[in-house]
Design a protein around this nucleic acid. Structure first.
Lengths: 246, 246
DNA sequence: TGCGATTTGTGCGTATGTATA
DNA sequence: ATATACATACGCACAAATCGC
């Protein structure tokens, strides 16, 4: 493929070159010339095409990466990100079902599980005594292999002993609950905020530290209204769009 | 003041130099050695202190700026940002009522109002033809003077002519609606995501560009179910916490 | 398994423009 | 007007990761 040199750049004035590069690439994406999953031309080629230094290209791409439009992988290339998943937050939100509906393969992965005493916040959320034993799990949920959320989930302990192993085997919390005889559960409360990902979260979610995550703190109850689960999920902000069902 | 050279840098390996610079400066801030409003040492001095190139310092500071810890002003210096006011609110229905409940003085301020043709997105949201006339308002909501959200709200036009003037006078959308004979309305749909604030939003919300905003897109309907309002609000993420209670 | 080519990541040195004090 | 300090940009070099052979 031939490379067109000096694609329109308003050199003289106004916008910075790196911003113009970003705009041009963004236009390629929004117009559909580049589709989700496509690989961008290498930085060196883009540099040549726009008649700028590779650093200048990199700065433009960095901005797009921040906004979640593209994603760079060392040694491989820079790729157009897939469109965000619409994720309903309702009384009964089941991750696997949501994903299945959008036609994506979903699975929860158990990162760690441990028995620890409940701190003040967790104890309040679960309605138990501070210091009571709880099962604390860290999990990652992916859609088609791409991490969507990284969560810490806590369960009161005598009751949910072994839940982690069921979850690890099934990859679904709903199924793990069934193993323990809990046929149904629902959402009691949901709180939402957002901030930038810290390094640990970024590593788990495979994003650059500083990217935005939506923080969803929720409490689930069983059919008797007893609190069984307190979760803090961190969703990669530009990979999901939350919708509130009524 | 004397400049200490070669402040700990793990040169050999592992973390990138620019990241270590960022960490060091962040440590200065979180430890209190640098207080909100303080000016950092010039980039050139930091470069000398860490024994790196000024570009390397700049990259580190850029990350901190993105995260909202510092803010660079050309020709002046780089400053530690003032601590954000944390302000929790619930996502009920009426902004003024919510604020009143927490004992805050709330008022919506009309930034601009104009008659424009509906673009594709707005038309879909309001269930009207693309290009139909709409009233588009930009508003800022503050609690005790602190900006909480910056919103663009659209109304279909023949019906809501003059709504902007009522809103400007009352500072409340609910009251403005009453003037036009709409006694009640409710939320049809709500979508939530988050990203970094662009410069325009940052200016309106009085935050550093790159700070996180929660984006809430909502549609309201009147009692007959007719769509009357499409809003995109941008909340300063660390000034609000959305809660969905049931 | 290893090697080499490709591609992104990091860093240095330099130069020029522009806003601020 | 001058000096300072941040903003942008170029060129070069090498490291690190990935992928195909």
């Amino acid at each position: 493929m031939t490379i067109t040199r000096d694609q329109v750049l308003d050199r003289a004035l106004g916008l910075a070159a790196w911003r113009q590069v970003a705009d041009a690439v963004e236009a390629d994406i929004t117009s559909g010339r580049l589709k989700p999953g496509d690989r961008l031309a290498p930085e060196s080629q883009l540099a040549e095409r726009f008649g700028v230094n590779r650093h200048t290209v990199r700065r433009g791409l960095a901005m797009l990466a921040e906004r979640g439009l593209v994603r760079a992988t060392q040694g491989s290339g820079t790729f157009v990100e897939t469109a965000p998943v619409v994720y309903p937050i309702g009384l009964k939100t089941r991750f696997s079902e949501v994903m299945a509906k959008v036609g994506r393969e979903a699975r929860g992965e158990l990162v760690s599980a441990e028995h620890v005493p409940a701190d003040k916040g967790i104890a309040e959320a679960l309605g138990i005594e501070k210091g009571s034993p709880i099962l604390q799990m860290h999990t990652i949920y992916r859609a088609d292999g791409v991490p969507l959320s990284f969560a810490r989930t806590c369960f009161p302990l005598p009751r949910f002993l072994g839940l982690d192993q069921h979850f690890a085997a099934k990859g679904s919390l709903t199924k793990a609950y069934k193993k323990l005889g809990i046929e149904d559960y629902k959402r009691l409360s949901t709180r939402i905020t957002a901030r930038m990902a810290d390094p640990a979260e970024a590593a788990q979610l495979d994003i650059a530290p500083g990217r935005v995550v939506l923080i969803i703190s929720s409490i689930n109850v069983d059919l008797e209204g007893v609190r069984i689960q307190a979760t803090q999920s961190r969703f990669v902000a530009d990979r999901v769009e939350l919708t509130i069902e009524r």
